[in-house]
Design a protein around this nucleic acid. Sequence first.
DNA 1: AATTATACAAACAGATACGTATGTTAAAAT
DNA 2: ATTTTAACATACGTATCTGTTTGTATAATT
Lengths: 213, 213
Amino acid sequence: MRRTKAEAEETRNSIISAAERVFYEKGVSNATLEDVANAAGVTRGAIYWHFSNKTDLFLELYNSVSMPLEDMIAREIEAPDSDVLCYIEKSTGDWLGDLAGDEHRQRIFTILLRCAYSDDLLPVLEKQQEVDDRHVALLENAFAKARSEGYLNANWTPQSATKALWWMMGGLCSDWLLFGRRFDLVAEGKEGLKRLFGSFRPSADIVDASPAS
Amino acid sequence: MRRTKAEAEETRNSIISAAERVFYEKGVSNATLEDVANAAGVTRGAIYWHFSNKTDLFLELYNSVSMPLEDMIAREIEAPDSDVLCYIEKSTGDWLGDLAGDEHRQRIFTILLRCAYSDDLLPVLEKQQEVDDRHVALLENAFAKARSEGYLNANWTPQSATKALWWMMGGLCSDWLLFGRRFDLVAEGKEGLKRLFGSFRPSADIVDASPAS
DNA sequence: AATTATACAAACAGATACGTATGTTAAAAT
DNA sequence: ATTTTAACATACGTATCTGTTTGTATAATT
């Protein structure tokens, strides 16, 4: 039964949405297109009408989400001149809050983490790397600015601080996503960020509890 | 052709070894048992003789490796009384060296990271969690000891230091393993450890470059 | 109003991949 | 020396899953 163009777009979206849930639950390679069709309330015919195959569907799903770097960049652009470290810390903490509140994004991330990249969806891996590299570059710039303005502890360099933050965030989110969200991502994450950024600042700024004896 | 018992054990090992390589290259769910058989120079008959199915083979492969926690524990037991933080840092750095030098372990880790855990190999996930939890507990004890002996900066608690280290190591290794080993794991890792542990220590211990102005 | 093209559903054909069943050979057991 | 049995290879049947093809009802076009 021929649908109107808006209705067709609806089914297309419902297929992508169903694919997200099915891929998340069963893994991309274990999920069958009939699983997706059932979850979307259509038949495989509809899927093959809108997409050429499973890989294509996966790529479209991947493209359908505004990757979090985008809004990270969006925030970074309006960087204030005050305390840059405070800004990075807050921005990163907010990013955690976004992730914790967005099941959609959580599923996408989990799918990408668990996904065994076969040759055909190598573009996904490349885009991931590219996005990551840009993100790292952004952080390095911000930390360099912090350093030049005297906000960075001499114990750290912009590069090392970036990597420490980057890897800690990666480990934190992987741990949370892959192991059943067993802890409060935002609370634990911000706690960790507070400590780490505390060590990023010159000692005088943060040591208020126990002065060096 | 009936083989002697030793020869049969050989083929069993070669199958496991082949499974490791094939699972690593194609992902567990994309790999077929015939792939494994070809890589091992046998037929599927041999695999079905030694293992009941692919899941069983995967579990046996998983069990065949001495998980790195074991040697971490082995080291931890003979913990010295000197500077506990130095010991944790060295121990962690050595662990990185072990991983960097052991392609076998690298493949296992990568397989586990990329593996979409379906219901049947849920035991793997549970064992992973259990091992991780014990490892975290060990670290917390060590950091608690460091704190009680005055080695831990007041900016950190045993729990927060453990988590920061744990997540940073997780992010570091994931980054290295999943993205083509694009950097020197040991060099970058030890550099990061040096900075992080620098911030773990009371300020007087490490600030030799720029005294607080 | 008749035609056409769209948005699917349903049916079909091909290829895997799995599990099993059977065959075969040589090492053990008797 | 037979017999048995372990350690596979080979062959078979079957269940998916995939991609394509065909059918069909309706929206859009003329």
